[in-house]
Design a protein around this nucleic acid. Structure first.
Lengths: 194, 194
DNA sequence: GGAGACTCCTAACGATCGTTAGGTAGGAGT
DNA sequence: ACTCCTACCTAACGATCGTTAGGAGTCTCC
């Protein structure tokens, strides 16, 4: 077998940090091994290939986002509340594991073949949740007239940016960031007094 | 000399496309040369190193953003109008050259030494323009109470996302995108009726 | 105490990387 | 005619890449 052991998890952790800091292509297997104080060849007792490490990280992050979004949508019927819950859930996932999230957002394109296609469509399905919330909000007259695709892209890219700059020891707690982003995202869509 | 000739500009164009599509680290000098139908070694008649190509692209893009922001700020005294002008200018620069802009946003970290530090501080100065507009808008009571740093990051990362998905032959014209984003960005900050 | 899983080692493979050396052909300016 | 410049070539350099082969300790469970 090749997928067991706690070492496997350490590899993902260390690799996430390196991939976020330097990018997947600029990080060598020897870099990851060095951070674990082992030889590069020893990596292959735990992993079949470098791309497998990326896949494991990206797949795990994608699953986290999907599960959080599902839970957020489950107990909110109102479109506005649903969008707020989606934003909050996204912030929570990102801040809970910024390395993994950042790699998911920026490095998934280095996957090849079926895996890349699978992530591309899962990303699209995830974005569709936001588009649907915007569309439904428009339908009930809660949001100012706008293009759902543009609005969803606006909000989602803003959310993904958090993965780049967030640091656990920073000035802002995950909760405060979530509050801010919910306010900003909903504010962008609701009627203004101007 | 090494910096003249129109071939030099073609290198930047082709390299921008490849860097945006595959990333700097995953793009070889031979890839760029192949797209120009020349040998890899022939690249070095025009360019001193691979990093020089990245620098030329990133420096050019940074200058474009700086100039556009300066012009946008020049003829707008009101903070709200100024933020709107900054957003509009940013969208214009991105849509005018999405490849270059995308490389600027995502690949600048592969620069090394002084160049990397210089771009980091220029990026920060650029972001400071947005923070200042938000802060000034708060001061005159035009914006809902918020954290200027968070709000600026929110808007800027949303703006930078355009570089990733925008295609000149897409559904939306640069003008329509600019209008949408101005509306969304200002809406995020101004008082709502809720 | 033997088996099997887990972890890591040294050594090396072929491929590809950025880059340099040295040379050639054609055009422009004198 | 001569020289310079631009633009490209072939050939090759040392380094580094992801990965494989083959072996060996340590641990747990029967």
């Amino acid at each position: 077998m090749i997928e067991t052991g706690s070492r496997r998890r350490e590899i993902d952790e260390v690799a996430s940090e390196l991939f976020r800091a330097n990018g997947y292509a600029a990080t060598s297997v020897r870099d990851i091994a060095k951070a674990l104080d082992i030889q590069a060849a020893s990596m292959y007792a735990h992993v079949a290939s470098k791309e497998d490490v990326l896949w494991s990280i990206v797949d795990g992050a994608a699953t986290s986002f999907e599960r959080a979004a599902e839970a957020a949508e489950a107990d909110t019927a109102d479109p506005v509340d649903r969008l707020a819950a989606l934003v909050e859930a996204h912030v929570e996932v990102v801040t809970a594991d910024p390395e993994r999230s950042s790699v998911f957002v920026t490095e998934w394109r280095h996957l090849t073949g079926d895996r890349r296609a699978a992530i591309a469509s899962r990303r699209d399905a995830y974005e569709a949740r936001f588009r649907a919330a915007v569309r439904d909000g428009l339908a009930v007259g809660a949001f100012r007239s706008t293009d759902p695709a543009v609005a969803a892209a606006f909000i989602l890219t803003a959310l993904n940016g958090i993965a780049t700059w967030y640091r656990p020891d920073g000035r802002l707690s995950p909760d405060r960031i979530a509050d801010h982003y919910v306010e900003l995202a909903l504010g962008a869509l609701t009627e203004t007094t101007r």
